[in-house]
Design a protein around this nucleic acid. Structure first.
Lengths: 347, 347
DNA sequence: CGTTGCATTTCCAACGTTGTAGACGGGAGT
DNA sequence: ACTCCCGTCTACAACGTTGGAAATGCAACG
């Protein structure tokens, strides 16, 4: 790897002049510029970013910490973050925490962050007792549920409103026995609790009684958990004509079990999920769900982080809290009210 | 952010002594070490990695370039690479190329790589004419199909053997009219062509005639393409009793169309995919497929890259080409021979 | 008591870059 | 002719770190 020094020697000018050419400084005589550019081409010179970073005190790298990339939700989020960051000239260093509290803390505290200008962090293992861990000396933007009330920037989806939309849609189909899969016990402010809150709000608004028997608690939120919770629901032999799965993976797992149990979707049971992962669209039947607009979340988060990075000297601008609205996406598993009526009548 | 200088001032020692403590140098008097550690704790000192990197000439960062993270295959690969890299003390900078040739070239050539000790690169837009682009002055390991015969390290799955396994399995179920979805025209050495080769080899070995009418060519490899190709196959009104989709997404898309067309899987049509993405297991029916062992591919690739980074001074050890074997994963869409017979008889 | 050897610590330079200040030279203004 | 200005270029220092050489202090040795 050649350096500015090498280029300078070949071009017969000073190191600084080469640097000036590389950085587009305007007061360089055209003939000199040409000479330097020739030397750069000849040597295939590439600026050394480590040196530049050291000099400039910034790295052009932002970190993204997520639990696990292999879960569609985070993969799609990472995709969107990468794209948004690229637009602003940043590259992204991705870390997986596995959702483990110790790893999350180690990451927030560790020296790796000194390689980044800021961090987008999607916490999972941390809980309310850890709010002091989030008081870090570098720009930090949290993604996901607002578990913490500290002075940290935060971008999240509107879980409650989304759950209201989902529940209202099921009610609009005439369903009155709406089961919930994947509620969490003893959770403070996670998405599960927020979504359950939205569910109850919608029931109340429609004056449909809340039946605890219809709520299946379960910690995991993956497809197997969807299958497990659906089986449990069926085993309870309580009447239900709709399922609100608190995320799409649960819904997809449930679809499978319903099918095996001989229950038709949506005729016997309407199913709605939450997240609008790519597979939802291709499930059989395709899954009605809530789109949290991941791309916008990523955009907002990167924007907030970049502004925070730029504003750093001033310290303490008020924490920015962004809530991105959700949208109902109607597909086959809980079709539009008009169609559903038709289907039910036809069956 | 405090520096070694600050810590040294507080502890009343020289900068280098602090450095020695930080780096675990053994000849430091215990009392001194304690003093320094106290100062470090007091100031919350974190080494500046940019400076360390400049000094050391290495960054502890490896790059991973993939087409798009939101495709499960790459998300799962990235997950595995991150894990393998972490074990070896590396962090991973992920770049998305979108599969575009210009972006891939820009990445290989650009200054961003000077931030990395090496690059894992999964090319998609590049073709055989670009082999000179791969002659880069830093450690590079290619992932995916071995399109290039250059002197570049390469880790790939055994596409041909996998396709043979898939086809043999379908033949073992007694199917003789095995359609192929997603073949590529005019491709040199991509996975599509290799897998089609395996298919033909297996047919030949079993003395089943090859019928071009059963091969559906199509460039895209996503679910919609699976649906499109399945529709085309049905429209051809050529007899078929099994489908070998050249990847899982195609297979999943096809499942949907088969279902809509009233064809039962596996009774009327046995379906097999390739890749064993997470969803395969949860499809309805669950998808028989070929597991390429992504985790092992990631392991091998990171290992090769790390060794290449370490070996750099010597230059030119022979290119390492690793082919990870594939495994047949039997599920419902093309069940074990014994069961299939049962199902068919029962139907 | 001078020497040697070793543990411990310090000093200096360098990694490659860029900001700042200043040197140099020629044309315009007085 | 002298100054001043401006365009162009260069010298130097610094970002924070670590390798290597050199300095220091101490104890054991002959």
């Amino acid at each position: 790897m050649s350096t500015l020094r090498d280029v300078a020697a070949v071009a017969g000018v000073s190191i600084k002049t080469v640097s000036n050419v590389v950085n587009g400084y305007e007061h360089v005589r055209p003939s000199t510029r040409t000479k330097v550019e020739a030397a750069i081409a000849e040597l295939g010179y590439q600026p050394n970013l480590a040196a530049r970073n050291l000099r400039a005190g910034r790295t052009g790298v932002i970190g993204l910490a997520v639990p696990e990339l292999r879960f569609s939700y985070f993969a799609e989020l990472a995709d969107a973050v990468l794209a948004a960051a690229r637009e602003r000239g940043y590259v992204v260093l991705i870390e997986q925490t596995g959702g483990h509290r110790e790893i999350e803390i180690e990451l927030l505290r560790g020296p790796r962050v000194s390689m980044m200008d800021g961090l987008l962090f999607s916490p999972l293992g941390l809980s309310a007792v850890d709010t002091d861990v989030l008081d870090v000396p570098y720009p930090l933007v949290l993604l996901g549920e607002r578990i913490f009330n500290g002075p940290t920037d935060h971008v999240t989806m509107d879980n409650v409103a989304g759950a209201v939309q989902a529940t209202e849609h099921l009610l609009s189909l005439g369903r009155r026995r709406v089961a919930v899969l994947g509620a969490h016990k003893d959770e403070q402010m996670g998405s599960a609790t927020l979504r359950l809150t939205g569910y109850r709000q919608a029931l109340q608004a429609a004056q449909v009684p809340f039946d605890p028997e219809l709520v299946v608690f379960h910690d995991g939120w993956h497809r197997t958990d969807g299958a497990d919770t659906a089986r449990e629901l069926i085993a309870r032999s309580v009447a239900f004509d709709a399922i609100f799965a608190l995320n799409d993976e649960l819904a997809l797992g449930a679809l499978r079990v319903l099918h095996q149990a001989g229950l038709r979707v949506p005729q016997d049971v309407a199913v709605i999920g939450f997240d609008d992962v790519a597979e939802a669209q291709f499930a059989m039947p395709s899954l009605t769900t809530i789109d949290p607009h991941r791309a916008r979340i990523a955009q907002e988060a990167v924007t907030a982080l970049v502004e925070r990075i730029a504003a750093e000297p001033t310290r303490d601008p008020a924490p920015r809290v962004v809530t991105v609205p959700t949208t109902l996406v109607v597909r086959e598993s809980a079709p539009p009210a008009s169609l559903a009526a038709g289907s039910v009548a036809a069956s």
